[in-house]
Design a protein around this nucleic acid. Structure first.
Lengths: 229, 229
DNA sequence: GCCTGGTGTATTGTATGCCAAGAAATGTGA
DNA sequence: TCACATTTCTTGGCATACAATACACCAGGC
């Protein structure tokens, strides 16, 4: 039903072009395939500002933030380039990711309710019994959701934020890391074991399983990710 | 002996005001006592640019980076403020720190030589036998050095960088966390145990000891850091 | 033909000016 | 005197102008 008064929205006064551009660029960068051979890694301030129909200043401030975050690299007087992680750097990302999620698992055991933990189970019902083969795409999403759920349930914002940043890089190569079917099946089994450890409130075991699960990804990258230089 | 060729250094062309200001401000912020009641948390773009004798633009870009890093908070049209962590946030910092250093310990065992590990011992010779009481100031430095050494020996840049950022916040309250003497003595004992675990190449034990050592700091903050709001 | 140096253009770095939003100060009426 | 409106001042947001550099291209000399 319509109100009799003019429906003025509270308006998000936190709208600043700088922030919008930051979000927009971040979104654009994370959703493009950085590792394609023909990927355009150069970012042109002027073209960006023209395309967004604003001046260069807020664009530059957004780029400064992205550089601090490690998504782009600014070479003075040369230009702005989207960062491609080397294989070694990607392995570091996964290693730190493992550290963060493993600690998150410990916190989940401290802080999450039984219900919250068991909610993790429900997201895998579709895939139980090795049906992952038929639904690899969906599974890829569920997989991500699972890991993010653990971080969320840890109720540690810093952990979530840092992990999200790392995840950007992992996401950009996920298509090539889950493609193999036995890896998907294996992954589901790992996840179920992790959930069991959480349900038993066995912090050491859960932390260990989470860490090993992530480090398996590291091993996989080490062996097969030749596209990372 | 002098070379026959002209020794031209590549010249650090990475001089950009933006970066210098960033370093300068970061240095200034980390070395001030943020948690003093009379601390001036407000940063004024114009005053800064006048004091540095440059324009506001590079200052703003430096501030944008500092915001992304979490050291300052920019409120649109209101001002720039140095961030004071709440107690809860500081606990998160320590928790994540524990996660990172614990993983670093594992990596040290994988990657460091026996010599590198035993080098950790030498920095504590001065304090052995409970002499920490007399040298608390020096010990505080050594303490920091120890933790940073572990990170360095892990040979994981990402781990080091992230930990350094967290350390900025921990450093700002360290005077009040090590002040008690039994904490200093206890700390040395912990460190020696950690070194022993590293020498035995017992990854699980080392990781556990490092984590617990850091989490003790969390407990201490939880109980005694009332100055954090 | 290749190297050297100069020139022009594209692009980034920095300075500056104007504008709008908040905050503080001031004025005004009950 | 107090509440509220108005003005003024402060301060950050954004646009734009100018300066400096990198790179491509070209011409001339060896």
């Amino acid at each position: 039903m319509a109100h009799a008064q003019l429906a003025i929205k509270p308006i998000d006064a936190n709208f600043s072009l700088k922030d919008k551009i930051y979000d927009s660029l971040k979104q654009a960068i994370t959703s493009m395939n950085i590792y394609a051979e023909d990927a355009e890694l150069r970012l042109d301030e002027r073209r960006l500002s023209e395309k967004l129909e604003i001046s260069r200043t807020p664009v530059r401030e957004a780029l400064a933030r992205l550089e601090q975050e490690g998504l782009v690299h600014i070479i003075p007087r040369r230009g702005v380039y989207i960062v491609r992680k080397t294989k070694a750097e990607m392995l570091e990302v996964v290693t730190v990711w493992a550290a963060l999620e493993s600690t998150a698992a410990r916190l989940v055991i401290e802080k999450a309710t039984d219900d919250e933990i068991s909610s993790l189970r429900t997201m895998f019902i579709t895939f139980e019994g090795g049906k992952a083969k038929a639904h690899i795409d969906e599974y890829s999403e569920t997989n991500i959701e699972f890991h993010q759920s653990i971080l969320r349930l840890s109720q540690c914002n810093l952990l979530c934020d840092l992990a999200d940043n790392l995840f950007i890089h992992m996401r950009s190569i996920r298509d090539r890391t889950i493609a193999e079917q036995d890896r998907a099946d294996r992954s589901i089994i790992d996840h179920l074991h992790i959930i069991e450890a959480l349900e038993k409130r066995d912090a050491d075991l859960a932390a260990k399983l989470v860490r090993e699960h992530s480090m398996n990804l590291a091993l996989h990258i080490e062996k097969h990710a030749d596209y990372l230089e």
